[in-house]
Design a protein around this nucleic acid. Sequence first.
DNA 1: CTTAAGATGTAAAATAAATACATCTTAAGT
DNA 2: ACTTAAGATGTATTTATTTTACATCTTAAG
Lengths: 147, 147
Amino acid sequence: MHITRYTDYSLRVLIYLAVNKDEHSNISSIATSYGISKNHLMKIVQQLNISGYLLATRGKNGGIKLIRPPHEINIGSLVRKMEKKDKLLECFGENNQCVITPSCQLKHIFAEAQESFYSTLDNYCLSDLIGDNKQHELGQLLAVKAM
Amino acid sequence: MHITRYTDYSLRVLIYLAVNKDEHSNISSIATSYGISKNHLMKIVQQLNISGYLLATRGKNGGIKLIRPPHEINIGSLVRKMEKKDKLLECFGENNQCVITPSCQLKHIFAEAQESFYSTLDNYCLSDLIGDNKQHELGQLLAVKAM
DNA sequence: CTTAAGATGTAAAATAAATACATCTTAAGT
DNA sequence: ACTTAAGATGTATTTATTTTACATCTTAAG
């Protein structure tokens, strides 16, 4: 069972922004803090931008910031947006070749299981990932800012 | 969210064997019926064999058959056995590079979500995938036997 | 001893995901 | 206006993972 780095990174971006909510953040700093590809992160940030999680400002002194408070950002909802829906089993996708699909129940029970997965994530929001007690620790761990 | 073909195929093997429970089955026939790689299937069957789901008999007139009744074969338990456990997010794996892991809650909530996924599958067994009404239909769909 | 089955290990191919590169757009500051 | 530092976008490359193929071995019936 697998979730892409793309989705993983999108969560890390939101955590970063929630932890540094009073500071001016930009993609380069986030990429440096986590030691990941800036270009990949740009595409993720772009999707978060389009999806209304953050505001990206171009130009000098630009950057990104959350536009919703962390307690209004639901994790299940985010992960649903970032992950592709047609990857769970072959029969969920476009060019499914499985011959038994018309009579097979697997698709239904796996769809139900997937929904359980997301429902659990629905119980959490971004602020649960930070909490008052973790904010400072996370801030320290992320403090390797880009120059 | 993604489950490997390896696991998908293992479910298909068990469905095949449950549907054709009175016949003499072999790997070549199953590979031909589903139109998939015989060699890949062999490794899957091998794991199912080791895990006690089926009995593989070598030699002429050999083949494979279920050694447990379909209502005793739990889907959640099977999928847990077939899927790797360290793939959900980067922080589940061996060489995790994520700097915030020591203070990050993501691992816990994703572990809980993963458990919800498997718990749902725990509610089903192989016989639920066949049922009296589907057995004949599935038999038809799989009837393209190898020569 | 032949034949048809599974067992096993390695190599290659295919797929998917992540990263790099190149260029463009935007806006602040001078 | 010009420079600079930010994000936007499209394409190509690299890497990782998964799947498939190939080769050889083992087993047991007839």
